[in-house]
Write a protein that binds this DNA or RNA. Structure first.
Lengths: 190, 190
DNA sequence: TTTCATATTGAACGATAGTTCTATATGATG
DNA sequence: CATCATATAGAACTATCGTTCAATATGAAA
């Protein structure tokens, strides 16, 4: 058995903290090797295994699998049922949620008007500015100059905003509905 | 006025796609400079501005501000209210949600037993294995060999599991409650 | 326009990163 | 124990990366 998974774990933690890889001599120190030669070999192994990539300018760059986290798949329909650790697609959360950083904006949810959609106060939604939206999507609209997160709905060819909380009223725009962006994801920290 | 924000945008998009920075000659090409000297100066400016950091081994590494995304703060208590684009802490979602990758596991929510806690089916929770948990936390427990996500609660010094959905029963462990990990966050993609 | 501050070009230089290779260590298998 | 496969140590080598600096371009202010 080989120790590459240990090395990988250390590289992952290091990269998670710094956003870069150290030079080979630094990697050697990090993983407890005494020489760069071994690092070179190890990097090749990890590259073959799909965790790393060595660019043409001799830089180590993380590959998809590098960001892979164990993703457990478990069924839970009331009472806990079978649990198998099928791990699915690799996940870098950022990469998974955000495609175009320059068009992406984050917005903190305040209030409980979208609570039935699973958006709690304090949650952060990921908004893609200017993305096309259609009925049923959650969007950020600008109503009377104010940002608001709601479902976009259509009735009789007319768009309106619907909260996911029956305690709040639907919102009809006076003349036209200005859509700031499309909500493409959300996250929350406890 | 200077063009650094344009350069920064390009660096951000590049880094978002690849996870590394190109060498200075590559950066020059990327941002439309013809020489490395200018890149060197530009990197220094961005470093001063807190976007980048140059390590002792002459590597460029992203700093906090590099991951900053526009974070809008908006108040929404039923009817949309004031909206100001105060941007708060910088966010790399991964960095924000995950501290120790090697101890972190992702778990997909199935079923609606935690729906009142804003965890919908399909949401992914971020689980820190073996982290200390106390009553009131959302945890992943192993009950009869099965994984389940629930609130951890205590009554009379006895721990039990509480679903966030009144349609489901509380769960009392037969002998002892095995806690797999603490739920430290969650995310969702639409 | 002239002046001044700042940004970029372009080339030469020195440091050092990663490669490569052989020798040694490690550890599984019979 | 002996054998074999694999991983690491260690040192020498070369490519190339980022620095530096003078010269030039850019652009705002007087």
């Amino acid at each position: 058995m080989n120790k590459d998974h240990l090395y990988l774990a250390k590289l992952r933690d290091y990269y998670a903290n710094t956003g870069v890889f150290p030079p080979y001599s630094g990697i050697a120190k990090l993983i407890g090797m005494r020489s760069k030669g071994g690092v070179s070999a190890m990097v090749k192994r990890l590259a073959n295994a799909g965790y790393l990539d060595v660019t043409s300018d001799r830089r180590i760059k993380p590959q998809k699998s590098f960001f892979e986290r164990e993703l457990f798949d478990y069924v839970q329909a009331g009472l806990p049922q079978s649990a198998n650790d099928t791990l699915a697609e690799p996940y870098s959360i950022d990469e998974y949620l955000i495609n175009t950083p320059s068009r992406t904006v984050l917005l903190t949810i305040k209030g409980d008007s979208m609570i039935d959609a699973g958006l709690m106060p304090g949650d952060v939604v990921i908004v893609k500015k200017g993305a096309p939206a259609k009925a049923g999507n959650i969007i950020v609209a600008i109503v009377d100059g104010e940002y608001t997160v709601k479902y976009l709905e259509a009735r009789d060819g007319q768009y309106y905003l619907r909260p996911a909380n029956k305690a709040y009223p639907e919102i009809y725009a006076r003349d036209h509905l200005e859509i700031f962006g499309l909500v493409v994801g959300s996250f929350r920290k406890y």
